[in-house]
Structures are given as C-alpha cells and as structure tokens.
C-alpha cells in the first residue's frame, strides 16, 4: 500500500518527509531497537512507542524509511532534524500500538517484515 493510505488509515500527522507515493509492503512494531535490528527485513515501516534519537539511528542503519510514533507521541526537534538529515519519514498517530498494527494489517499490510 502507498504511504498515503497508511496516513489515512492511522489518521496520522506527517512530521517529516513528503513522499506519500512510497510503496510500503511490510511493517513491524517494537520498542526495543536491538530487536528491530535482529529481525527486520528490507524496507519496512516501523511502528514504535519509543521516542528517542536512537529510533532514527536504528532506522538509518536498517534502511527503514518510515517511522510511525504511536499513542500520540511527538518527537522533539532534535529527533525531527536528525530524521530530515537522514531522509527518514516520521509521523505520529493517536492510535495505540496494538490498534495501529491491527488497522494496517486489516487494510492488507500483512508482510511481517521479519526474517
């Protein structure tokens, strides 16, 4: 599905990045960055309840292009700047983790994004 649909489904607010035509095939939800680095495959969308610069760093290392902050969490300016510098799209949704994942899965984003 297109990133545009992700934004609609999650009623998300875009924080950085603007390529809404980007194709998203799989997603993963985690608050533990080393778990993300252990299991994530190419080009996933990462949903996380963790707001820290290390989320952006982890995304950078793993070639993750999109990060969705769940439960209404909004990253600070230093995180947004880092994401812009790395070309990583950030968005925020009021949905909690379980609901956000469920909505995307239900809408057809079923690639599990892990090995």
């Amino acid at each position: 599905m297109k990133l545009r649909e992700v934004v609609e489904i999650l009623d998300a607010t875009l924080i950085s990045g603007n390529d809404l035509d980007m194709e998203i095939v799989s997603a993963c939800g985690s608050d533990l960055m080393s778990d993300v680095m252990a299991y994530v495959k190419e080009n996933v969308l990462l949903l996380t309840g963790l707001v820290s610069p290390q989320v952006v760093r982890t995304a950078e290392m793993m070639d993750i292009k999109v990060v969705v902050f769940v439960r209404g969490k909004v990253p600070g300016e230093n995180i947004v700047e880092l994401a812009e510098e790395k070309g990583i799209t950030l968005m925020s949704t009021d949905n909690p983790m379980f609901i956000a994942c469920g909505k995307l899965y239900d809408a057809g984003l079923t690639g599990k994004g892990v090995w």
Partner: peptide, 12 residues
C-alpha cells in the same frame, strides 16, 4: 527507556 537492553546487541 531509550530502547536498549533487549540483550540482543552482541548476538546481532
């Protein structure tokens, strides 16, 4: 709280 401590770093 910063997202580390899974005990997966060295295994990774």
């Amino acid at each position: 709280e910063m997202g580390f401590g899974a005990g997966m770093g060295l295994p990774n």
